[in-house]
Simulated assay, not measured.
Amino acid sequence: MAKQFPRIGLGHQNFIEAQQIFFVATAAPEGRVNLSPKGMDSLRVLGPNRIAWLNVTGSGNETAGHLKQSPRMTLMWCSFDATPMILRAYGTARTVQRDSADWAELADLFPGGPEKRQVYDLSVEMVQTSCGYAVPTADGMTERPVLKDWAADKGEDGIRAYWSERNRTTIDGAPTGIEDNL
């Protein structure tokens, strides 16, 4: 049975911080819904109603484009160990680009280098837990070094060129705002 809460409680935060993967969902008023898995050391619970997560350079930039049109965001974690649970945080988010006044403050919460693209600052309006009984267990999850190595090889200039080529628009053609950071 699903339960809803107005904030992230200590038990919720402990569960979130124990997970190695989370999922983010966003949608513009028109076009496709985006759902992406995220990992690495890229998420911080900043308070009972605030989460920040680091977005690293990738093949698309859907979240940024969607948030320019509609600030809705859902984050989801599910346990892959012996204790089943699913937790979702619903709210509104803003994109913090590298040229934003609070970029350094938020980006410095996370390790990494040139792969850092944006930080998303989520105001959590509701937390929901559900059983997770149908989620399979999985052993041996470990981080992949591929993205960090790829970004380090490209360097800052190479990353910006990649953003210019691949991250200016969503798959539906909406602007992502990355051009201000080129």
Rank of each mutant, 00 (worst) to 15 (best):
D108C: 08
W163D: 10
K38E: 03
D139W: 08
G155T: 11
D81P: 00
G31S: 12
A93D: 06
L147W: 07
R7N: 10
G177Q: 12
T63Q: 09
N181F: 08
G113N: 07
K38Y: 02
Y120A: 01
V135P: 00
P48D: 15
C78P: 00
Q19V: 07
T142D: 12
W103Q: 03
A161Q: 15
F22C: 06
G60K: 14
Q97F: 14
K116E: 03
W77D: 07
D81S: 10
G91F: 09
M85R: 15
N34W: 01
R160D: 04
L54M: 13
P145E: 13
Q118L: 09
M141R: 12
W150I: 05
E115P: 00
M73T: 09
Y162W: 13
G132Y: 04
R32H: 13
S79A: 12
R160L: 13
E30P: 00
L87V: 09
K148E: 10
L43D: 01
E105Q: 14
W163H: 13
L46T: 04
A27C: 12
D41H: 12
R117Q: 14
P175C: 10
A152S: 12
G177T: 05
P37C: 13
A82F: 11
V56S: 05
K148T: 07
A104V: 10
L10N: 05
T129M: 08
M76C: 15
N61A: 11
G177P: 02
D139T: 11
Q118F: 07
R117A: 12
Q118E: 14
N61D: 06
N49M: 10
R98W: 05
T83S: 14
S100V: 01
P71T: 02
G58A: 11
S42V: 10
G112C: 02
D99L: 10
D153R: 13
R117Y: 03
A174D: 12
S123F: 04
P111Y: 06
W163V: 12
G65K: 03
L87T: 07
P145T: 15
A64H: 01
G65N: 04
A2E: 15
A52E: 05
A101M: 09
A18E: 12
T92E: 11
M73N: 02
E156M: 10
T83P: 00
V146A: 15
T170F: 01
G47M: 08
G31V: 05
G112N: 04
E17M: 15
P84A: 15
R160H: 11
D81K: 09
T63A: 15
Q13D: 12
G58V: 02
R166A: 11
K68V: 00
Y162K: 03
W163C: 09
S70I: 00
Y120R: 01
F5I: 07
R94P: 06
A18C: 03
E143P: 05
D99W: 09
N55P: 03
L182P: 00
M73D: 02
V127S: 08
V135F: 08
G112Y: 01
S164P: 00
G155H: 10
T169C: 06
A25L: 06
L43H: 03
A28N: 02
T57Y: 06
